[in-house]
Design a protein around this nucleic acid. Structure first.
Lengths: 249, 249
DNA sequence: CGAATCCTTGAACACCTTCAACAGGGGTGG
DNA sequence: CCACCCCTGTTGAAGGTGTTCAAGGATTCG
């Protein structure tokens, strides 16, 4: 998997290949940012930060230093409530950015922890200004990414507002499927890196409900699940179960 | 209320006063944007678009032309589901921005409609680049605003995930209170510009549940509600009912 | 191999929804 | 100005969906 092998610094072609399915790629290479500027950008990005399963990228309350991009593996972000319990806020697959919510306060509201061995790039947002010309086009792309995040959050809001457990899980599975597909992984067969409990927390349901739904979905020939291995059998029917204004990806 | 009276074009002091509690003010006047640049910015902002109750600012599917800032009044944004029903996505008070979710796709995913007579500023995002130097500082502020929106959405996500109806409504009332306070309106007494049905949709509950909760909150001496007029009596106790990682404002 | 964690399944219960009926205001037209 | 009507909001009762509590089974990892 070439994507998980970081390019050596200055190895521009390597970088292009490495990031081609990555949000960060569009962040690095929007139309109008030439190779020369790209070298500058490359200079402030730290690559290949590696986390093992269970290791924290940042915790709630940590100062905001970087925006992170997932290169390989996956992470979950979470908020800690006053009563000490955690709520899963999102899952982050290769090519997705983390830490956007901290731009405003410069303090991380959420924490982030690796669900499996994962590698990341670090982008120091406050050093973007050193890059002069490049700043405008990069920031423009960053605006797009944040806008996309807002759209995603809003879709989730609809889902959590009035949707049945069944609809939530179907939408979640389809979301994963789309995100994997876009990254050139299989859209129909993939590994859940998160636990049932994480899914439940994210979807605002009980762990037991997720379990029962997986059982039911299998009885209905919609999918198979063995442990963490998911196989979607009937995407059209799963899709028809969901009634959302837009895709949740 | 001087805020609702638009300054004449070029009347810089008037602008400063008019927008001083407005997100757009920080957008227009971040540290580092001088008066000269401000005049440039002023040139591309259309002011004083007025909507009457029930009029649409934009609808789902409309092309993205402007980011809007509320000067006075209030609006709700909503998504239309495949089955034709609407889901309320948010309420927008003076000084808040609308349309951020459309930056990515350049098409409005949500619609927005005035809850009462409202006036707005229009900021054509794609003309920001004409402003040269100003672009960096303005975009930086825009990033902060979008980041804040993401934080807000995430708080809402927690609320909708596992919180009781009681906790949702308490958090909603406190959110309104904080937002009014910040705008130098009363934090304890205010007018709900939205219907019970809108609140219910936003909080993922039934209209009847909102009604019952208002009754219960009054029995518990937490507040009074007469029609749309709200008076918060016991903010500490309302606050103690809520268990969120951060304020929802 | 044992312990811990994750997952599954069952049964009772709780919270909120849905359905239904009614009350009250505000706006409109006579 | 009043009467009417429609829409919004309130309240009651029944029902459903998902939760909670409890126990047992499976998998992984030291």
């Amino acid at each position: 998997m070439p994507r998980s092998v970081p390019a050596a610094a200055g190895e521009l072609d390597g970088l292009k290949v490495a990031c081609k399915d990555c949000n960060l790629f569009q962040l690095c290479l929007p139309v109008g940012v030439g190779d020369a500027d790209l070298v500058l950008l490359e200079r402030i990005i730290k690559r290949n930060r590696v986390l093992k399963r269970g290791e924290y990228l940042f915790r709630p309350g940590d100062p905001f230093l970087f925006i992170y991009a997932v290169k390989s593996g996956s992470l979950k972000s979470f908020a800690t409530l006053h009563d000490g319990t955690d709520q899963v806020m999102g899952f982050h697959l290769p090519g997705e950015l983390l830490g956007l919510d901290a731009v405003n306060t410069e303090v991380h509201q959420c924490g982030a922890v690796a669900l499996e061995t994962s590698s990341l790039c670090e982008l120091p947002l406050n050093r973007l200004e050193e890059l002069g010309n490049v700043v405008a086009s990069v920031q423009r792309q960053l605006l797009r990414v944040m806008s996309k995040q807002i759209s995603h959050d809003q879709t989730l809001q609809v889902l959590l507002s009035k949707k049945s457990a069944e609809e939530r899980l179907a939408a979640f599975l389809l979301s994963l499927s789309h995100r994997y597909k876009r990254r050139h992984f299989s859209a129909l067969e993939f590994q859940l890196s998160m636990s049932r409990q994480d899914i439940a927390s994210y979807l605002g349901l009980a762990e037991e409900t997720i379990s029962r739904l997986f059982t039911r979905f299998q009885e209905q020939q919609l999918m198979t699940v063995v442990r963490k291995r998911v196989h979607l059998l009937d995407v059209p029917r799963l899709t028809s179960m969901v009634n959302l204004p837009q895709q949740m990806d």
